[in-house]
Every structure is written in structure tokens, then in C-alpha cells.
Amino acid sequence: MRLKVLILKEWAELFRIKMVLYGCLFMPLFMGGFAGWMVWQGRALPAEGQAALFNAALLYFLVLPVMIPVTLGVYSVVGEKEQGTLEPLLATPLSDLELFLGKSIVAVVPALVLTWAVFGLFLLAASQMIPGGIPAGVLSLPWLLSIFALSPLMALFAALVAMLISSRSTDSRAAYQFAGLAVVPSLIPLIVYSARLTAVDLKFVAIEGGILLVLNAALLFLGIKIFQREEILTRWK
């Protein structure tokens, strides 16, 4: 119940910040639009060319879910420190697990909702733009798993890394600089797929998914372990 209370408050607060709201909307629209533009450019290509472009366009939907959680996650603890709400928050019965998990969920859910919504719009637009519809075999099981199963794990990873940095930082600017680390896992499929010049395969999705699952569990454990209430209170001036 406390988890839900925290999540609802966080969203109520975050989406009143216009820069955060516009920032969260801009990236999906920009990347989805760019992916759509790529498909539009290749609409006259033969089927193999269209498939290659389509594959490249889909990679944007793996990058997208990590960008929003980084923005929201980095601010989560540092933001509380900066507006002086961390001490009253820590004085409540909220546990470290609830605090850490709640703030991670706050960062992950909007990222996934927006990614999937823009992905749906992209598919709809692509099916209209390409004369023969979406090339056969492009929307394979590995790709759908990447978008719907790998993305949440990547988003959670990004949120947890951002939260860790946020809880250890004494300054929001430093936190934003370090938060770049959180996008690394989303770059891995980008690099692998680009290097192999091949469509995604189930084995790769399963391996990266497994690694992310373990990493996320480890990060959550580590995050709670190193979330030292009193250090945060006494170190932050």
C-alpha cells in the first residue's frame, strides 16, 4: 500500500514539471518519427532492403525505454534531497525496499507505456507506408520479445542505475553526468546487431534477458544495501 502511495505521489509531482513532461514526450515522438521516416525512405526498395531498414528502425525502440528512466531516476533521490523532503520521508514507516522499488517503478512505467504506444503507432504507419505492408518475417518472435520483454528489463536496469547514482550523489549535476552509464545495456544489442548485420535471434534475446534479470536483482539488492539513511542525511548539506 505504501508503495502505491509513493508511486502515485511521484507521478503527480513529476508530471507537474513541464520540462520533465515535455522531455518524456519528446524522445519517443522524435525516435518513433525518425524510425517512421527511415521506413518511408525505403518504401521503394526491394523486400530485403526494406527488411534491413525495418530492423534498424526497430533498434530505436530498444534505446527508448532506457532514456526516460534515466531522466526520472536520477532526479528521484537527489530531488528529494534538494527540496528538503528526504528527512521527513525517511522519518515515515516507508522501508528502504519500498522507497527504492517505488521510485524505480515510477521511472520504468512511463517509459514502457510511451515506448509501446509509439511502437504501435510506428507499426500502424509502416503498414500504411509500405505498399506490400510490413515485410514478412521482420516482426518475428525475437523482435517482439525484445520490445515487450527485454525493454522492461532494460528500463528497470536504467532506473536502478540512475537511482543508485542519485542516492550516492550530493549534487544533481554530478548525478546526471554519471547516469550516462545506465544506457550501456541498450547499446549492446545495437552494437551486436549492427556488427552481425543480421536480424535478432532468440538465443541473443534470451542471453541478454537472463543477464539483465540477474543484474537487476543484484542492483536492487546493492541499492538497498548501500542506501544508508543516516549517511544521506548527514552528508547532504
Binding site: 502511495v5 527540496q83 521527513p88 516507508l94
Partner: peptide, 21 residues
């Protein structure tokens, strides 16, 4: 120096802490 969620209303701030308790 008590801090609050400045963008939220007085009632919303209070409701948040009340519910946590």
C-alpha cells in the same frame, strides 16, 4: 527547514504523508 513537494497542493502533501503513516 521542513521541505515539501512544492508543486503539489497543501492537501496533497499532507495526504501523502498521512497515507504513508
Amino acid at each position: 527547514n521542513p521541505g515539501f513537494y512544492k508543486r503539489l497542493t497543501v492537501r496533497r502533501n499532507l495526504r501523502f504523508f498521512a497515507e504513508l503513516y
